[in-house]
Simulated scan of single mutants.
Amino acid sequence: MNKFTRRTVIAAACAAAAMTFGPMSFAQQAPEKKDVTIAVGGKSLYYYLPLSIAEQLGYFKDEGLNVKIVDFQGGSRSLQAVVGGSADVVSGAFEHTISMQAKKQPMTAFVLQGRAPQLALVVSNKTMKDYKQLSDLKGKKVGVTAPGSSSQMVANFILKKGGLGPKDVAFIGVGSSSGAVSAIRSGQIDALINLDPVITILLKNGDAKLVADTRKVKESESFFGGTMPAGCLYAPVSFIEKNPQTVQALTNAIVRADEWLSKATPEEVAKVVPASYLMGNRDIYLAGFEGNRDALSPDGRFPDGCAKISLGALQTVNDKIDPAKIDLTKVYTNKFVDEALKKYPAK
């Protein structure tokens, strides 16, 4: 073989190798930042279940990451942790990406955990025995996790179906755990919009009646006119631009968790999550998961149009946001999920 021929063969071989491994090498590169801190507000909630599954099943480690999850009392505090620099990424409500852009602190969501808010509205069987329709809540006290929270935002949309505006009821912050349960049982509030396991506990014990349920995708879409994105991973744009492989690794782990949860039985989930999540009542936890399964994202993708719906909902609790100044194409991206699905295609 002469020199020219040898060089030609070698060049052809290199080109073939580049074609074989080039496209995959980007997705397979090591994370720029292996130690990542994720802030979350209420880690044990079903709302954030994909995060816990990815942690417990070792999906983050599989991607070369050492993930530390710091749990805060609410989503706003987890967001503050990232803004303050003590955490890198937030596992939180999608709409925060919109409100932060309005504050000129751009953040982008890169993998979805929930495709519906997972909030349910119930009325007290103690103070609202004669309840018949949403308009009956006029002038009543409605418990929310916190004033201005996602729960109040969803409540506004639900109440609108009954012809009620935000000022027609009194919103009271009661948290998302035992305090919320006590508020209904004691008669402190007449209605409550909250997450599980609070809702399941109240319904199982006969303390409340279910009025509206965004744990069901179809019912959620009937209120919002389409998919209302919920829990997701999001981070400052600067972090994503500086650490694309780290973000890809995080996305891969959550996509795997989303896919696992779409097929898991309640019993399988209960075996994986920490015992503390069961709150001493395994049956309640199992029932709660079954009630929330539909609202979990099956693949991590953000549906078309979801950001517009989220913006409309956000305006009901924050009228200072000017839609004309929000670029909805920058509050989320599916490019990392698209890559993850190539590596872990849904089966």
Score class of each variant (00 low, 15 high):
residue 199 I to L: 05
residue 238 S to G: 11
residue 177 S to H: 13
residue 203 L to N: 02
residue 56 Q to A: 13
residue 104 K to P: 06
residue 82 V to G: 02
residue 306 C to W: 03
residue 256 R to L: 06
residue 339 E to F: 14
residue 90 V to N: 12
residue 62 D to M: 13
residue 153 M to D: 04
residue 239 F to T: 03
residue 238 S to N: 13
residue 51 L to C: 06
residue 57 L to P: 01
residue 205 N to T: 15
residue 124 S to L: 02
residue 159 L to Y: 02
residue 157 F to H: 14
residue 345 P to N: 04
residue 161 K to V: 08
residue 269 V to Y: 02
residue 337 V to F: 01
residue 194 N to S: 13
residue 223 F to P: 03
residue 214 T to P: 03
residue 316 T to C: 08
residue 23 P to Q: 03
residue 99 S to W: 07
residue 177 S to L: 12
residue 79 L to Y: 11
residue 158 I to T: 02
residue 133 Q to F: 12
residue 41 G to S: 09
residue 275 A to S: 12
residue 167 K to I: 13
residue 240 I to G: 02
residue 223 F to E: 08
residue 140 K to A: 09
residue 232 C to E: 02
residue 73 Q to E: 15
residue 2 N to K: 10
residue 68 K to W: 13
residue 59 Y to H: 04
residue 345 P to S: 08
residue 304 D to N: 13
residue 45 L to R: 14
residue 304 D to T: 12
residue 85 G to L: 05
residue 183 A to N: 01
residue 271 K to E: 05
residue 260 W to F: 13
residue 99 S to H: 08
residue 302 F to H: 01
residue 160 K to F: 14
residue 312 G to P: 02
residue 78 S to W: 09
residue 178 S to H: 10
residue 204 K to P: 07
residue 238 S to E: 15
residue 185 R to C: 09
residue 55 E to A: 15
residue 47 Y to G: 07
residue 19 M to A: 15
residue 285 Y to L: 03
residue 275 A to Y: 10
residue 227 T to L: 10
residue 222 S to P: 05
residue 37 T to W: 13
residue 211 V to W: 00
residue 326 I to G: 01
residue 4 F to L: 15
residue 277 Y to R: 10
residue 194 N to R: 10
residue 289 F to W: 06
residue 303 P to M: 06
residue 88 D to H: 09
residue 227 T to Y: 11
residue 48 Y to Q: 08
residue 239 F to E: 00
residue 125 N to I: 06
residue 191 A to Q: 01
residue 302 F to K: 03
residue 26 F to G: 09
residue 2 N to R: 10
residue 253 A to V: 01
residue 21 F to A: 10
residue 312 G to D: 06
residue 276 S to W: 13
residue 303 P to F: 09
residue 143 G to V: 02
residue 140 K to F: 04
residue 115 R to Y: 05
residue 245 Q to K: 15
residue 190 D to I: 03
residue 346 A to T: 12
residue 233 L to M: 09
residue 10 I to A: 11
residue 314 L to A: 07
residue 50 P to L: 00
residue 298 P to R: 06
residue 58 G to S: 05
residue 198 V to E: 03
residue 103 K to F: 11
residue 289 F to I: 03
residue 168 D to I: 02
residue 136 D to V: 02
residue 296 L to D: 00
residue 249 A to W: 00
residue 170 A to W: 11
residue 82 V to F: 05
residue 105 Q to W: 08
residue 139 G to Y: 07
residue 313 A to Q: 06
residue 240 I to R: 04
residue 189 I to H: 02
residue 1 M to I: 14
residue 6 R to I: 15
residue 16 A to I: 13
residue 69 I to G: 03
residue 190 D to P: 03
residue 312 G to Y: 07
residue 40 V to C: 04
residue 64 G to L: 08
residue 72 F to S: 10
residue 80 Q to W: 15
residue 28 Q to E: 14
residue 188 Q to L: 14
residue 216 K to S: 14
residue 190 D to Q: 08
residue 15 A to Y: 11
residue 334 N to L: 05
residue 224 F to K: 04
residue 149 S to D: 09
residue 24 M to I: 13
residue 219 E to K: 10
residue 89 V to T: 01
residue 91 S to Q: 12
residue 278 L to M: 07
residue 327 D to P: 00
residue 71 D to P: 07
residue 90 V to S: 13
residue 234 Y to E: 06
